[in-house]
């Protein structure tokens, strides 16, 4: 049978994979993919908590997940627009070449 710990472990693994992708991709869109995976793992945790944890209003966890999805959509739209804008300026979206803000 499924229990909360199962869900949390899946979430943790998904999160660390997402983190690895977000920190290691060279392409900005790749970075964004990692971030989306991390957000997904957070949502998975929220849904898991909503399902298994005692709460006065259990549906709150799912509502929260809906909000996270909303914000993620907005974030993805802006981030991808940024990537396109940066590409127009520099003809690249490789983040290791976008390092103007250094010492």
């Amino acid at each position: 049978m499924i229990s909360l710990e199962h869900v949390l472990v899946v979430g943790a693994l998904l999160f660390s994979i997402g983190l690895f992708i977000a920190l290691s991709r060279r392409n900005a869109v790749g970075v964004l993919m990692g971030i989306e995976l991390m957000l997904n793992s957070v949502n998975l945790n929220l849904i898991g908590f909503a399902r298994f944890v005692e709460a006065p209003r259990p549906i709150d966890g799912q509502v929260f997940a809906v909000f996270v999805i909303t914000v993620a959509a907005a974030e993805a739209a802006v981030a991808l627009a940024l990537a396109v804008a940066v590409y127009r300026l520099r003809q690249t979206i490789d983040v290791d070449r976008l390092n103007l803000l250094k010492w």
């Binding site: 290691s24 991709r25 060279r26 392409n27 869109v29 790749g30 964004l32 991808l80 990537a83 396109v84 590409y87 003809q91 690249t92 979206i93 490789d94 983040v95 290791d96």
Partner: peptide, 15 residues
């Protein structure tokens, strides 16, 4: 986004 940035790297490489 990928299609709109044609000259950027497409190889999904790591840093």
């Amino acid at each position: 986004a990928i299609l709109l940035t044609p000259r950027s790297s497409r190889d999904n490489s790591s840093v």
